[in-house]
């Protein structure tokens, strides 16, 4: 049983735990109903939805690496209309709040989707995926002007809290987080995957169809932690931090680095119910150290 002492408040709502599913690692969000303990999940983040249906990248889309994996899914999804008709009704019944993740190519795409999600879903927040590394175009996060236009545009188009999911592949992650905050984001979420590659030396072929892909898993945790630390020091809005979180101790590290919520992604591939154990791990830490609430230790590093 998850106890009340690891609940957190964000966007004026109380989440049972600080743990959210990282976009793209938990399907649309409802598929694991029979297998995962949704009471341990603070919020479900959907897979990223695009305006039009996307068939995704050709196989092979996955490669295992030491302590992690590479992927090049390419945002395969049913598109906005089918998401609203077929997927949302199933998400609306979940016990956990839902953050809907969206991506587009232009600010107009994002705005259109934000409007539709606000009108037709009872989502708790909208997450802007500005950081997918597996599309032919550059990562949106690497274009400050575009980031600003998208976040501002969406901010004006919806009353929902707006989360900017940003990429670690920028020269100054703190500055990017500040840019999102100044443009009206209610929270920043980081990190998305780090670009990487792997080669089969026998066939001399890259292991992924798109040659490079996004790396995730325990191997990226220290890199992600540094990004979350830098971003959370720079902004006043909440930070959703993650990257390679597998255990409760990993999650506590992110909270100490400044994350209000912690996202769990690749760990869900190994165990769809991983969040239950991670929540128990955080709870054990809180009990052992006699911590009244997680907000007391968020970003509270001893020097």
């Amino acid at each position: 049983m998850v106890k009340k002492n690891i609940s957190v408040k964000i966007f004026g709502i109380e989440l049972k735990t600080p743990l959210v599913t990282a976009s793209g690692t938990f399907g649309y969000g409802y598929e694991s109903r029979d297998l995962a303990d949704y009471d341990s999940i603070g919020a479900v983040v959907t897979k990223t939805i695009t305006l039009k249906q996307k068939s995704g990248n050709p196989p092979p889309r996955l490669a295992e690496v030491e302590a992690g994996m590479l992927n090049t899914i390419g945002l395969q999804n049913v598109g906005l209309d089918r998401f609203l008709d077929e997927k949302w009704p199933k998400l609306a019944n979940l016990s956990a709040p839902v953050f809907v993740s969206v991506a587009g190519e232009t600010p107009e795409d994002y705005i259109k989707m934000a409007r539709a999600v606000s009108d037709k879903c009872s989502a708790a927040a909208i997450e802007l995926n500005l950081s997918c590394p597996n599309l032919r175009k550059q990562i949106i996060c690497q274009n400050n002007e575009l980031v600003s236009q998208i976040v501002k545009g969406v901010r004006e188009a919806t009353k929902l809290p707006v989360i900017a999911k940003i990429s670690p592949m920028v020269s100054d992650i703190a500055a990017l987080a500040v840019l999102c905050e100044e443009s009206g984001a209610g929270a920043v979420s980081l990190v998305n995957t780090f670009p990487g590659m792997a080669i089969n030396i026998n066939t001399r072929k890259p292991k992924l169809s798109t040659i490079t892909g996004g790396m995730s898993g325990p191997a990226i945790k220290p890199l992600a932690l540094r990004c979350v630390y830098a971003a959370s020091k720079a902004v006043k809005i909440p930070v959703i931090g993650g990257g390679g979180v597998v255990t409760g101790d990993d999650a506590v590290e992110f909270i100490l680095a400044g994350a209000t919520l912690v996202s769990v992604g690749t760990a869900l591939f190994k165990d769809v119910n991983a969040i239950k154990d991670i929540a128990s791990g955080i709870e054990a830490y809180v009990k052992k150290n006699n911590i009244a609430s997680l907000s007391a230790i968020t970003g509270n590093l001893s020097q």
């Binding site: 995704g56 889309r61 992927n71």
Partner: peptide
């Protein structure tokens, strides 16, 4: 057979046409 991560459709990794 394809490279697989989650085994239940969540990751969309093991695509075939």
């Amino acid at each position: 057979e394809e490279m697989m991560a989650c085994g239940m459709g969540n990751c969309q990794g093991c695509a075939v046409e």
